[in-house]
Design a protein around this nucleic acid. Structure first.
Lengths: 337, 337
DNA sequence: TCTTTGATTGCATAGCTATGCAATTTCTTT
DNA sequence: AAAGAAATTGCATAGCTATGCAATCAAAGA
């Protein structure tokens, strides 16, 4: 048998074996093309025997569309983002789009990463970056391909956003605490440049109304540790809250642990507490956290629809901004008693 | 100015503007090619003015190498996998490899997904699937490209594995519990087809030695809920453990919560408990979980090296199996008192 | 100055598929 | 049965870059 050829199987090989032209092979694998059922069957049989897989690369060259979407993530350590990514990958695949994944620490990495992705002629970009600056927006807009951002305030000709109604949720959080007689409310903010966090804080303050004067604001950084540390410091300063709203669930868990461990305060009995994101860990019995569910499924589905619209716009920039209401999920941390 | 052309900028456009040939442009963007510094500068300037990005697609056709690696994940809801993915994406990018991400629920999805990925001529596959069957191994091996699996027993000409020493860790877990006077050990297993879990259980049983007769084995499914439920059922049956080894941290957290809530048992004071994976949540104060750290960094680094080897093998199948020792991380859940 | 060497550049091509168009075959209709 | 309509098929080509090869040019040595 001589040397085993490693040359990949092409449509020409299949055509030869099936006794048809190369174009027939191409059509056999296309859903829309016109081809006789018998011919298709014959070709698919030959293809299976040769273990032929249609090569998408030449098609990309011809159409200029790769069918790949660049997905930029940062902070997968937050289960909310990990879950969102999982949903996103599935939804995009259902639409025949592949995910080219990039992880980003800072703006520098982002530029680099985008350069590389552009070489692959990605059709669009989806980002779940919590933090976005004007520079980032500019870099994304310069790509001249559709960009979809979650919970971001980035703007641009090509940039669409899908966000939960952070401000409204903040108002609701305040109402819940007021209704239950909270006298000393505390707001635990996320990273300074996290637009969603800022909006949640604004809503909370507004919702507190007359009580806003009593509000104590803490600065966190979106992580469990930052929540734990911020609340520990607050306790050392002698502040004794009876109600808290935390910009996300990770920090909320940190806050609960600090309250308990540093001051013996029990969440719910001594302090009512709300988080945001509805991560699985918030439902763990040790935390039993009241929180806001952004509806990851809905969020991702909407993002995909926006994306599909933008891709069909035929090279014209599309910019939509969609807001989805978050749903309050009440658990033990606001049950009182 | 007429109609704005949407045709993407090609190397020919840059060549024209810079007054050189198309090949010169190609060489200007290549690190190895021979080109005069002045010429390169001139070309890069023209390229920047036109906003030209080298297109990798034609190069893929010529070389047959896409520079993309298919990464198959399932269960990103386990923070261990989410973290591993994050590391992996970064490490691969440092080596100039892009990540084409696929999420998989079951074997069916996998076949579909692989079909699609093959169309993009991926150079290799990396999987972090906890669960692998013979059918999966066969499907992967049939791709005739390097495959790297984490913590798996999949075998094949093209399949390499990188695993932590699950059995040895199980032995260590048993020793820890024995040394601290545990009389009623319990093993909480992960999903049945999870090879890593099986190995951990075997090691644990072996490490218990004479005490293995007392061992109570529970069946979980790798999730928090499954751990909570399995332990709750055990408590209902009247079993009162004083030492537990859980196949992963998620289940360990569920176990701790069930012990406390269903039987008022305190982890550490009444029950010594170990997990596996060292997920961030295990370090949260509410759990303070002793666990085994697989060393994600090391694991991923090794996987990338194996991958690089395999890619350099020039089409010949490569199969390595590397085992890394897990490190015991002692925290409060085994502190006693 | 002439030859030799090395560096730089351009030409031409390969790589594989999808698709417009024309040619051919099959089916319908009268 | 003939003509027209519809379906099917093959031919030829575009799409963009990297690279072997030959040609050109500059520099160095004789």
């Amino acid at each position: 048998m001589g040397v085993r050829e490693r040359r990949p199987v092409t449509s020409v090989d299949v055509a030869k074996r099936a006794g048809v032209s190369q174009s027939a092979v191409s059509r056999a694998f296309s859903r829309t093309a016109s081809i006789a059922p018998g011919t298709r069957e014959k070709i698919l049989k030959a293809a299976a025997e040769l273990d032929y897989r249609p090569n998408r690369i030449p098609a990309i060259m011809l159409s200029g569309r790769s069918g790949m979407v660049g997905v930029v993530v940062g902070g997968l350590s937050n289960p909310f983002y990990a879950g969102a990514l999982e949903h996103l990958v599935c939804s995009l695949r259902e639409r025949g789009l592949q995910v080219l994944l990039v992880h980003v620490d800072d703006a520098l990495t982002l530029d680099d990463a985008l350069e590389q992705l552009l070489g692959y002629r990605i059709d669009a970009v989806v980002t779940a970056l919590a933090i976005g600056s004007k520079a980032v927006a500019k870099a994304l807009d310069a790509l001249r391909i559709p960009v979809i951002c979650f919970n971001s305030r980035l703007t641009g000709q090509w940039i669409s956003t899908v966000s939960s109604n952070n401000r409204a949720a903040g108002v609701v959080a305040a109402r819940v605490l007021r209704e239950r007689g909270v006298m000393q409310p505390v707001w635990l903010a996320g990273a300074l440049r996290n637009a969603a966090s800022v909006a949640r804080g604004e809503g909370f303050r507004r919702g507190l109304g007359a009580m806003a004067g009593e509000l104590v604001s803490l600065q966190g950084a979106d992580t469990y540790e930052s929540g734990y540390d911020a609340v520990s410091a607050m306790l050392l300063r002698g502040v004794r809250p009876d109600g808290m709203f935390c910009s996300n669930d990770m920090m909320a868990c940190g806050a609960i642990d600090a309250l308990c461990e540093r001051a013996g305060l029990s969440c719910s009995r001594d302090v009512m507490l709300l988080g945001y994101d509805n991560i699985p860990q918030g439902a763990w019995r040790a935390y039993d956290l009241t929180t806001f569910d952004q509806g990851v499924g809905q969020l991702v589905k909407t993002a995909c629809e926006v994306l599909a619209n933008a891709l069909e716009a035929g090279g014209e920039p599309v910019s939509q901004n969609i807001v989805i209401e978050a749903r309050l999920v009440e658990r033990g941390s606001t049950a009182g008693g």
